[in-house]
């Protein structure tokens, strides 16, 4: 250390200060770079989807148009958004996206009817009723369920839910012969898959409710059920609702399980034993490699992908809005 300069009150850090601050700046830049990668990737995905989807609707990508390619109508928005037949790869093609949007929404709603009640009840059980011993066993089990690859759920649907559980029911009760795939099987398997998501996030929210509130209610002669439903659930509602939205987003984007469970037949049907096709299932079937780049069916992938992207984005915005609207109220 140089002795000529005024050492000050000991806050300049001596000779190493310059290097420390430089290292600090480097760390900061590195961390920012990592954070930026995710943002850039998201933007890039959105841009690629948008650019390619343009060629589906306008006959040329935006980037091509900038270079002088002329826009000519290929598939009209009216046909895309209102047409009731989806068969872009057919000899007589049809470009109405509604049947596969129906497929996706039907699976999502059906799955929510499975995952939300069962997941919420499981969360209440874990947080309010289960003894420490039971909780210690049940929680890891649920986490295992959440970690199973979705393709395995798909095989579970195709090998068990559909043939062993649903087929006899359809046959004996309704006289319907069900095929390899069914909408109901897709709803059930996606519902089961997303139970752990609902239960684990909801349970975290419920456990965070202070015991003071529970004791206040017990001291007034509330039963465990009163406390669970009238104190804990309302107090944790924003976290619980976040888990629902997450599960629904997951169901919208779910691909492998739903493709194997619900099938490849794009149609709008009220019959839960019918084969249907979701947006993701369509994308899987088109992306298998036999589809030539530049064909309309290739371009349709990006249009459907973009629509899916927008739907999940809407769910996320909904989640943010709800979080702000229903802040956890207890201190």
């Amino acid at each position: 250390m140089s002795t000529e300069t005024n050492p000050g009150p000991g806050i300049t850090g001596g000779g190493g200060a310059e290097e420390d601050m430089a290292a600090n700046r480097r760390a900061r830049r590195l961390l920012f770079g990592c954070a930026a990668i995710t943002v850039v990737t998201t933007l890039a995905i959105f841009f690629v989807l948008l650019d390619n989807a343009a060629s589906y609707f306008f006959g040329a990508r935006f980037t091509e148009m900038l270079l002088g390619a002329s826009a000519e109508r290929s598939v009209t928005f009216t046909e895309f958004f209102t047409g009731a037949r989806w068969a872009p790869d057919h000899a007589t093609p049809a470009h109405g996206v509604l049947p596969i949007v129906f497929g996706t929404l039907a699976i999502t709603v059906g799955a929510a009817f499975v995952s939300i009640p069962i997941g919420t009840a499981t969360a209440i059980y874990l947080s309010e009723y289960a003894s420490d011993g039971v909780r210690a066993k049940l929680k890891p089990t649920l986490e295992i369920l959440a970690g199973i690859p979705t393709i395995v759920y798909g095989y579970f649907a195709i090998a068990f839910i559909n043939p062993v559980v649903l087929s006899p029911i359809a046959e004996t009760l309704f006289g319907i012969n069900i095929g390899r795939y069914s909408m109901l099987s897709g709803m059930l398997v996606v519902g089961i898959m997303t139970i752990p998501m609902v239960s684990s996030i909801s349970e975290d929210a419920m456990s965070a409710v202070p015991d003071d509130l529970r004791n206040g209610a017990y001291a007034l002669g509330a039963t465990k059920f009163d406390v669970s439903t009238k104190i804990v659930l309302p107090a944790s509602i924003s976290g619980v609702f976040a888990s629902y939205i997450l599960a629904v987003s997951r169901a919208i984007g779910e691909t492998m399980a739903v493709t194997l469970a619900a099938g490849f037949n794009a149609n709008i049907t009220p019959n839960p034993f019918d084969e249907i096709m979701t947006m993701t299932a369509y994308m899987v079937s088109m992306a298998r490699g036999t589809t030539a780049v530049g064909t309309v069916e290739y371009q349709s992938l990006f249009a459907v992908g973009l629509l899916l992207f927008v739907m999940t984005l809407a769910m996320n915005l909904c989640n943010d809005w709800f979080k702000r609207r229903f802040q956890e109220e207890y201190r």
């Binding site: 003071d212 209610a217 007034l220 107090a235 109220e329 207890y330």
Partner: peptide, 23 residues
């Protein structure tokens, strides 16, 4: 009545009515 005030995150009315309701 507890050491730390622990009203429920509900309206004043619902806080007071809570005992009557659960009972």
């Amino acid at each position: 009545v507890f050491q730390k005030p622990n009203p429920f995150p509900k309206s004043i009315y619902d806080n007071v009515a809570y005992g009557l309701r659960v009972q």
